[in-house]
C-alpha cells in the first residue's frame, strides 16, 4: 500500500483517495446520463473500438477489408 504525508504530518493511505475518486467518478458517470457514459466507457469495452473520425475508420476498413458500421449521433 502507498502512503502520502498530510499537512498535519500524519501519513494517509493513497488507496483511500483512490476509493473516493472512484466513487466520484461513478457518481459523475451516472449524473452525465447514458450517452456520456457510453462515450466514457467505450474505450474500456475490451476490444470493440469505436473510431470518432470517419476517415480514420475508412483507412482501417481499407487495411482490414472489413465492412464499416457508422453511427451518427446528434447530441444537442
Amino acid at each position: 500500500m502507498l502512503w502520502t504525508s498530510g499537512d498535519d504530518g500524519v501519513d494517509y493511505p493513497i488507496l483511500e483517495e483512490s476509493h473516493t475518486m472512484t466513487k466520484w467518478l461513478g457518481f459523475a458517470l451516472l449524473a452525465c446520463g447514458a450517452v456520456s457514459a457510453a462515450a466514457a466507457l467505450a474505450p474500456q469495452n475490451e476490444g470493440l473500438v469505436w473510431f470518432e473520425d470517419y476517415q480514420e475508420a475508412l483507412r482501417q476498413a481499407k487495411q482490414s477489408h472489413k465492412p464499416l458500421f457508422v453511427e451518427f449521433r446528434c447530441e444537442p
Binding site: 467505450a42 476490444g47 470493440l48 473500438v49 469505436w50 473510431f51 470518432e52 473520425d53 470517419y54 476517415q55 480514420e56 475508420a57 482501417q60 476498413a61 482490414s64 472489413k66 465492412p67 464499416l68 458500421f69 457508422v70 453511427e71 451518427f72 449521433r73 446528434c74 447530441e75
Partner: peptide
Amino acid sequence: LSQYVCARITRMDKVDIGLF
C-alpha cells in the same frame, strides 16, 4: 459488431453529407 470497423460520429463539420 466486431466483424465491422465501427465509427461513432458526433460532429458533422467534416462529414461528407452527400454520401451520408
